[in-house]
C-alpha cells in the first residue's frame, strides 16, 4: 500500500518529473552568469579578454582614418580656415611671418627701385617708342624690363690674397674689402676641398642675388647680379667680362702677371683708372 498523498504532494512530484531538464538548464545558466560576473568584476580578467579586441578595433580604425575621416577632416579644416582666417594667420605668423615679411620687403624694395627707374621720363618715351615699333603692349614691355637681370656691383680682386684692387657699385651698402676677403676665402676653401686644380668656383647664390665669379691668372672678377639671371644673361655677362679683360686688363701687366719677382719694376695701374674702366664696361651694361 502506498502512503496516502494529498493533492499538493502529487503536484510537486508531477512538477519535478515535468521540469527536470529545465532545472538543470537553469543551474547551468546560473553558473555561467556567475563566471561572467566574476570576469567583469575582476579588472585583470576582463582586460585579458577585452584588450586584444580593443587593440584590433583601434588598428582597424587607424587604418581606415584616411578613407573614413580624411575627407571630413580636410573639409572641416578648409571650412575653419575660410571662416577664421585671422585666427589661422595668427597661428602661422610666428613661423612663416618673418620669412614672408623679409621676402616681400626685399621684393617690394627691388620692385620700387625698378619702378622708379621705369617711370622716369626717358623710360616712358623709350617704352612708347618700342611699343609703337613692335606693336607690343606697353605694360608687357615694362614688366619684361623689370624681370631682367642687372649688375649691382663689380669687384676686381687679387686671386691669392683676396685684396680688393678696384670696384664699381650702384650702392655703398657693404665693406667691399671684407667681402672680397670672404669671397676669396670661400673660393679657396671650395677649390682646395674638392682638390680639383683646374676647376674654379663659378658662382655663389645668395637669396635674390647671384655672384658670378670669373677667374684669370692673378685676379678674378666678382659680379653681383640681381633679378632673373638666366643663361642668356650669363652669356652676355661673360662677353662683357672678356671684353673688359682683353681691352683693359690684358694691357696692364700688373693685372695679368705675378709682378713680385719681375726683373723690371712694373708700375701698377692706379685704382681710380681701373674703377673708371669698370664703370665704363659694367655701369650701363644690359644683361
Amino acid at each position: 500500500m502506498y502512503p496516502k498523498m494529498d493533492e499538493k504532494d502529487r503536484l510537486e512530484i508531477l512538477k519535478d518529473i515535468l521540469f527536470a531538464d529545465e532545472h538543470e538548464f537553469e543551474q547551468r545558466v546560473s553558473q555561467r552568469i556567475e563566471i561572467l560576473e566574476q570576469t567583469i568584476n575582476e579588472r585583470k580578467n576582463l582586460s585579458e579578454k577585452v584588450d586584444p579586441i580593443i587593440e584590433h578595433q583601434i588598428n582597424e580604425f587607424k587604418e581606415s582614418i584616411p578613407e573614413t575621416l580624411g575627407p571630413a577632416i580636410t573639409e572641416t579644416l578648409k571650412k575653419e580656415i575660410r571662416i577664421n582666417k585671422d585666427a589661422v594667420v595668427d597661428a602661422l605668423y610666428p613661423i612663416l611671418g618673418k620669412l614672408v615679411k623679409k621676402y616681400v620687403a626685399q621684393e617690394m624694395k627691388l620692385l620700387s627701385e625698378k619702378m622708379n627707374s621705369q617711370l622716369s621720363f626717358l623710360s616712358f618715351f623709350k617704352r612708347k617708342f618700342k611699343s609703337g615699333v613692335t606693336g607690343q603692349n606697353e605694360n608687357e614691355i615694362m614688366l619684361g624690363d623689370l624681370a631682367t637681370a642687372s649688375i649691382q656691383q663689380v669687384l676686381l680682386i687679387e686671386k691669392d690674397s683676396g685684396i680688393l684692387k678696384a670696384s664699381y657699385s650702384k650702392s655703398d651698402a657693404m665693406d667691399e674689402e671684407m667681402v672680397s676677403g670672404m669671397l676669396t676665402a670661400i673660393k679657396s676653401f671650395v677649390e682646395d676641398a674638392f682638390n680639383q686644380r683646374n676647376q674654379e668656383l663659378e658662382s655663389i647664390e645668395y637669396e635674390l642675388y647671384e655672384i658670378h665669379l670669373q677667374s684669370f691668372a692673378t685676379h678674378y672678377i666678382a659680379v653681383v647680379i640681381s633679378g632673373n639671371y638666366m643663361l642668356s644673361a650669363k652669356n652676355k655677362l661673360q662677353d662683357i667680362i672678356f671684353d673688359f679683360y682683353h681691352s683693359f686688363m690684358a694691357m696692364n701687366l700688373d693685372l695679368v702677371f705675378e709682378t713680385k719677382n719681375a726683373k723690371k719694376s712694373i708700375v701698377p695701374v692706379p685704382k681710380s683708372r681701373i674703377e673708371r674702366e669698370l664703370a665704363k664696361y659694367f655701369g650701363n651694361a644690359k644683361l
Binding site: E158, K159, D160, G181, A185, S188, F189
Partner: peptide
C-alpha cells in the same frame, strides 16, 4: 694702411692649415 685680418681656425697640427688660406699673405 688697411689691414685685412684673416683669423684662421685654431689647430694643434700647424701642418694641417689649408695652404689656400695662406696664399698672398703679406
Amino acid at each position: 694702411i688697411s689691414l685685412i685680418l684673416w683669423d684662421l681656425e685654431g689647430t694643434d697640427d700647424i701642418e694641417s692649415i689649408r695652404n689656400a688660406y695662406l696664399l698672398g699673405t703679406h
